[in-house]
Amino acid sequence: MKRILAVVVALAVALSLTPPVGAQQDTMAKIKESGVLTIGTRTGSPPFAYINKDNQWVGFSIDLVEQLVKPAVEKEVGRAVKVEKKESTPPTRIPLLSANSVDLIAGTMTDTPQRREVVDFSLTFFYTGAQFLVKKGSPIKGVNDIAGKRIASQQASTNAKIIRERYPQAQLREFPDQPAAFQALLQGQVDAFTNDGIQLAGLKAKAPNPAEWEIVGDFYSEEPYGMAMRKGDARLKAAVDGGLKNGFESGKYFEIYEKWFGPKGELPYPLTATVKAYLLKQIGK
């Protein structure tokens, strides 16, 4: 019920706080005046955005804002800008944006057609998709091997939806949260756990014995992460996209990626050729 409740609350907030058409403030003008860019991000989603051992709020998404987006915004408004961070969770992030509490969501938000009806998205800054976490040596090598197998998923996720619709022979077990689903995999209640590849990589790293587990299969769903802005916030969108584009072109983006997802990074998740091509295709390369 918690999730439904969150949606209802979010709706209520959205209803009461959506400004009347035409009264929308221009975000860039506000930033020019205050010198502050407020972002909504996460405190517990390593390595995208989290509070680390030294109590610093860091992460891949935050670095992208600090090192790519901020310079572009500063150039646009013609003054130094400070990035302020606020906590935003999946149920609260869109209401926070609508309420002008934050100007930009930079965390782990997937760019979907439904969400595009409510907010605008930047260029995709991270690309993952659904895969399977299995015990090493499992007969499951991808989405085509799951018939008759017990597959854990996170309840209400797009992965669960796809499996139910396209692979009805699999025995789907939906858990409301990731730890329970992962525990079921560890103990053998299920044969595989399907989720976004990056999430699985995080789980695998935290497993009691990471070498026993492997992530298998091609992405059978697409999860492009983007930064979200209020709908129609054209000048901000231009600045954000410009900053990201610069990063892709200069290679700065790939340095930051390496820092967080490289072999020595917080969570090793190598950039595949397909993904790299996908990211570059956005800027016409």
């Binding site: 999730r3 439904i4 439904q114 854990a152 209400a156 939806k161 077990r173 858990f175 689903a181």
Partner: peptide, 20 residues
Amino acid sequence: LTISVAELTFQARQVETYTA
């Protein structure tokens, strides 16, 4: 539903997920 029993509340959420 926390241990993946697809009972009534689970299905109500499911409807919500699918239909928004």
